[in-house]
């Protein structure tokens, strides 16, 4: 491989990694606080992508970036209610049950999408999709650059919010010590729902940033789930910084692995890195504990 290709590969990897960061940030938050594995993550991402698609279509014609606040807020509200109304309520305090419920919800969501929106693949065509930033031998499509930068920004904002707001502190308290938090008067159920809501709100943002260069179909969300899990574990469950570095790292590993070993066998780099990290440093790169 020539230096040019390696360089371009790294840049491509970083851009792809930006997307993984976005999807993983929500997952890591949910995991860090609720200690559950959200099996509905891919399906909820898919629903958010459909929201972006329908907002973009006539008659609304809303640009996906302009729709970002709306979709994010909507995703938060939807997820908050979903947690309060279904997940938290039916889980009876057992983590295994949350896993099964989110699995059931994922089946419902995928097939509801199939029923109402058909199985057809939908794309949106924005005028800036073909613009580029040329960086030496690498071409960076504008929407990917935007999503990359936005993912950095979102991570930073979330980190600040968690550090300095009361709700943020309460979330961290609940994540560390449920019982203790309850004792000092924190409404733990409400915090759970808020954390779930924010986790899914991140997916809303991810959907807006993804749609200009990806597509949506009832199964399209699942393309990012496995990789998001990998990112979360690699970075350390519950760590934003970890999700950020982990996502970018995985993007680069995937990209270079693909260039070196071919796109098919190169895919092996992701689970392999995942396994090695877990075996050598089970708490992930940035995990505490």
């Amino acid at each position: 491989m020539s230096a040019d290709i390696v360089f371009a590969g790294v840049v491509n990897g970083l851009m792809a990694g930006g997307v993984y960061v976005l999807v993983a940030v929500g997952l890591t938050l949910i995991y860090g606080v609720l200690h559950i594995i959200n099996f509905a993550h891919g399906s909820l991402l898919m629903l958010a992508m459909y929201a972006v698609y329908f907002l973009f279509r006539k008659p609304l014609g809303l640009d996906p970036y302009a729709a970002l606040p709306l979709v994010t807020a909507g995703a938060f509200a939807f997820a908050y209610l979903l947690y309060r109304g279904v997940i938290g309520r039916f889980a009876h305090g057992k983590d295994e049950n949350i896993l099964l419920i989110t699995l059931g919800l994922s089946i419902v969501a995928d097939n509801a999408a199939l029923f109402f929106f058909t199985g057809d693949t939908q794309t949106i065509d924005v005028s800036y999709a073909g613009r580029f930033l040329q960086l030496g031998p690498a071409l960076i499509p504008l929407p990917k650059l935007v999503s990359f930068l936005a993912s950095l920004l979102i991570c930073a904002l979330l980190g600040l919010w968690m550090a300095f707001t009361d709700t943020g502190k309460a979330i961290r308290a609940v994540a560390k010590e449920r019982q203790g938090a309850r004792l000092v008067g924190i409404d733990v159920e409400n915090i759970f729902a808020i954390a779930y809501g924010i986790g899914i709100a991140c997916l809303g943002a991810a959907a807006c940033l993804l749609m200009p260069f990806f597509y949506v179909s009832p199964s399209s969300g699942h393309a990012f789930v496995l990789i998001a899990f990998t990112t979360v574990v690699l970075g350390g469950m519950g760590s934003f910084a970890g999700a950020l570095i982990g996502g970018l790292l995985i993007g680069i590993v995937e990209s270079l692995g693909g260039l070196r070993f071919g796109e098919q066998l190169g895919q092996i780099a992701i689970p392999l890195v995942f396994i090695l990290v877990l075996l050598l440093r089970p708490t992930g790169l940035f995990g505490g504990r």
């Binding site: 491509n12 792809a16 499509p141 990917k144 399209s220 990012f224 990209s255 796109e263």
Partner: peptide, 12 residues
Amino acid sequence: IPHDNPTRSFDN
């Protein structure tokens, strides 16, 4: 050049 289904990005 083989690729997986789904493939997230064809940049490379």
